[in-house]
């Protein structure tokens, strides 16, 4: 069980090299297979997640949620996907055509790129990057540009307001997000995500860095435009924010990318604070799935429990509370580690 997927990958490479391919080309074929797996993981996860989100929201609001198609409404998302696939692709006449058309495509590319560095099990990473965390944060922040493209290209006032709010919110929460993760990096001593997982062999970083975890969790919710921080697409006032003008497959790509980002951010949270793929008994790839899904359930719980936060409160919360707190956490971690070094415990 433990080494199923790594064994399959190794067997594939050996078989290809037995056919006479050079090591480089065998790696290339393996990369294509890995990419296909990631695309499948992304799609299946999103199908499950949309169903789960609707079920959880129904449960919290004392409704049934989807319950017609299949057992417990499990095929509802598939029906929705088929509907979106067969919908017309409307490109309004006053839009900035290329920006409008390419924004969802860029968004999904950016969010799938995040999966290149996430350790999905012991040795199950597409790239074991030595700057993995920096890569994750920098690629993740590109989604801001995609939202701005969608909002600006639409030439629609709702979209424009939504995009502007989204950009203001996302750039504000990006700094506490990065700084809170630095505390973990200081203890682990590496930006390589697999090293950070291994460093949590004895104790999870959520116990050593509780302030960083809380800061990260709040900032990540805001980065995802979810939960109490969904001002950018506040349905009651902005229709759908930056997505107002999109129809059919382009809209579906935005939705797909949002949920893909959710999975990626939750997986990073599990990797940085909850010991990643480490755990007793079960195989490593099952542990990361369990942890990621538990974190995503907390995200959903937050979304359907807290009321939406006002825009000025949202911005001042990031700059006046989260940023000083995360910097203080960084300094505190520094003093703590210096003390540990001085005592010879670390």
């Amino acid at each position: 069980m433990e080494h199923w997927f790594t064994d399959i990958a190794q067997a594939l490479v050996n078989w290809l090299m037995g056919l006479g391919l050079s090591a480089g080309w065998a790696d290339f074929v393996l990369l294509i297979v890995q990419w296909l797996c990631i695309v499948m993981i992304v799609t299946i996860n999103v199908i499950i997640l949309i169903w789960l989100e609707r079920k959880v929201s129904g449960f919290i609001q004392l409704r049934l949620g989807p319950n017609r198609l299949g057992p417990y409404g499990a095929f509802q998302t598939i029906a929705d996907a088929i509907k979106l696939l067969t919908k017309e692709d409307i490109i309004p006449s006053r839009t900035d055509k290329w920006i409008f058309m390419t924004a969802p495509l860029f968004f999904i590319v950016v969010s799938v790129m995040l999966y290149a560095v996430i350790p999905m099990g012991d040795g199950m990473q597409v790239v074991d990057f030595n700057v993995g965390l920096l890569y994750f944060i920098s690629i993740g922040s590109l989604s801001t540009i995609c939202l701005l493209m969608a909002g600006w290209g639409s030439n629609n006032k709702w979209s424009m307001l939504g995009a502007m709010r989204a950009v203001a919110q996302m750039i504000s929460y990006e700094i506490p997000l990065a700084i809170s993760l630095l505390g973990v990096v200081m203890i682990a001593g590496s930006l390589r995500l697999s090293d950070i997982v291994v460093a949590q062999g004895n104790i999870w970083f959520v116990l050593l860095q509780p302030i960083a975890f809380i800061t990260y969790f709040i900032a990540a919710t805001a980065e995802l435009n979810r939960g109490p921080f969904d001002m950018p697409e506040a349905e009651q006032e902005l229709t759908a924010g930056a997505y107002t003008e999109y129809t059919g497959m382009r809209w579906a790509l935005f939705f797909l990318a949002e949920y893909t980002n959710l999975v990626a951010v939750s997986a990073l949270c599990a990797t940085m604070f909850f010991g990643g793929w480490q755990g007793p008994g079960l195989p490593s790839w099952l542990w990361i799935i369990i942890k990621t899904y538990l974190i995503m359930l907390v995200f959903m719980w937050m979304k359907w429990t807290f009321p939406r936060i006002r825009m000025d409160h949202l911005m001042s919360f990031s700059w006046k509370i989260l940023l000083p707190v995360s910097l203080a956490n960084l300094v505190l971690t520094g003093f703590g580690l210096e003390f540990f070094k001085w005592m010879g415990w670390w």
Binding site: L105, I108, V109, M113, M249
Partner: peptide, 18 residues
């Protein structure tokens, strides 16, 4: 290479919807 492969994903989705 991963980036180039990933670009094929939305293009394939748009082609399917087309």
């Amino acid at each position: 290479v991963f980036l180039l492969l990933t670009m094929a994903f939305p293009i394939a989705a748009m082609a399917a919807s087309w």
